[in-house]
Write a protein that binds this DNA or RNA. Structure first.
Lengths: 154, 154
DNA sequence: TGACATTAGTTTTTTTTGAAACTAATTTCC
DNA sequence: GGAAATTAGTTTCAAAAAAAACTAATGTCA
């Protein structure tokens, strides 16, 4: 009458993707705390500010390519940032579908405020890791990412 | 007439939280590919299946504590899983607010199907990393997570 | 014991996000 | 030169998630 209880054993607390998730949430939460409390920007708006920076000028599509966000999210965030006066949209003379995006003076000032804070937090996150360990961590994450690419998009 | 262009320099491609984000997205996408195509479960439902496992019985609140999801998401996912016949809800005799959750036979069968697949994918993600490197990666993520805890909830 | 606080979980409302369809501009190539 | 295909970006619509308010049950302590 004994039921077969032979299942694959599985421990969530050591399951790698789970560890990655709680790691990611800790890190991203730690950064979003800053730009949220400091400016009220949401994650997509923040990411656009950051890929743009004080010098660069990019199209919406280039931002998509450099931010791992999708078209729609980027388009909406651009609208918000424009309304808030943080970026300027200049329609391209040659190709009138393209819009060149640039931080305004006000946007640059916000960038200047935020960047030192998030860089400081970045260092705090890496506290207690030697530079060799930091290098390793980044390298290992990159390796895993390469593996994911190979096994997913068949 | 020269404008002051002395801004903090910042490179997104080496910004640690950005690297963590694309790393996380690669890993979680790689796993969700599997349970999505194999079962149609969404991430919250999958996570509950996994924390529960074939033996354990937990309350909704315990699942919240063990899954880094919030109350509402868990409550809704439980409803879906119950409707789908994958988990059973037993109201606690002593405390009638509590509901003990358990996988049904059908839920266990799905678990038995999925776990070997995701464990295989886990290994594929870690392909090319020595066991020493795997240990290091996990340990370094844990360190960063500890740091995040210290600096965030002031 | 009985008002007040707490806890478990759900429902409602609002905000975010993502997928699909769409518009407008440009390219391709016959 | 102009129909067909492609590209950039937006809008619309549907699904997911987060926040807030709520219900029901239990605990506390005067």
């Amino acid at each position: 009458m004994a039921v077969d209880r032979r299942h694959d054993d599985f421990d969530l607390q050591t399951f790698f993707p789970y560890l990655v998730r709680i790691f990611y949430r800790a890190v991203s939460g730690s950064i979003s705390d800053i730009y949220l409390s400091e400016t009220g920007l949401g994650p997509p708006e923040w990411r656009i500010m950051v890929v743009l920076g004080p010098y660069r000028s990019m199209s919406a599509g280039e931002i998509v390519d450099n931010s791992s966000m999708d078209k729609v999210t980027v388009s909406r965030a651009i609208k918000k940032l424009t309304t808030a006066g943080l970026i300027r949209r200049d329609i391209d003379g040659n190709d009138r579908r393209r819009v060149a995006l640039k931080l305004t003076q006000e946007g640059i000032e916000m960038w200047d405020l935020l960047i030192p804070l998030v860089k400081e937090r970045e260092q705090q996150l890496l506290d207690g890791l030697s530079s060799e360990e930091r290098r390793q961590l980044v390298e290992l994450m990159a390796k895993v990412r390469t593996n994911a690419g190979r096994f997913s998009e068949q």
